[in-house]
Amino acid sequence: MSKPFSETPVYPVVFMLVITVVFVGVLAVFYRNSMAQIEAHKVNEYNQLLVELLSDTLADSTGIDRTMLIEQRDETINTYIKPLDGYSRKAYQLIYQDKPIAYLFDIKGKGLWGSMAAMVATDPQFNKIIDFAVYAQMETPGLGSRITEAFFKDNSEGNLPSPKATSRTTVWCQRGRKSLLPIRSAK
């Protein structure tokens, strides 16, 4: 060839391809290595919240100290919390002495800037919300994202809007000042 390779028209394409392969390769390796850790974080957080929401009811029924139940999280989950089938998202039953003493539903709905996911713990007759916590949201840090803080959770105990609404739990919450976010449950 009369021209060196670096001046042929195909050189830019080859260069791009090589660079892309190299960098994507490095990324893939890095990502695969970290993936397990990221998954573990997510599962840990989820299970932690799961146990925390149900621990009060469990402590009342079994008489075991609440903090101990939370500390021995995996054991608590294996012994008392059973997943339920038939719902479009995750659902759990809290079982003590072969009877369900609480339910927990994983719900997803719209926030202002993105979707939100939360857990709602209810009593066996679906009449009362025992506890509630948001575990995934994309709101403005400092404003809407404060929905995950304790002061908001403590607000949420109480009765559901209507005893007949067992298949649709609608929780209305406030972001910042005025906008309302409906969170619709699984079914």
């Binding site: 990324l27 890095f30 990502y31 990221i38």
Partner: peptide, 17 residues
């Protein structure tokens, strides 16, 4: 491409650690 690659590394690092 190069900038994006390094930023993704930062992102994944933060998510993991």
């Amino acid at each position: 491409l190069i900038i994006a690659a390094y930023v993704i590394i930062v992102d994944v690092f933060l998510q993991a650690n």
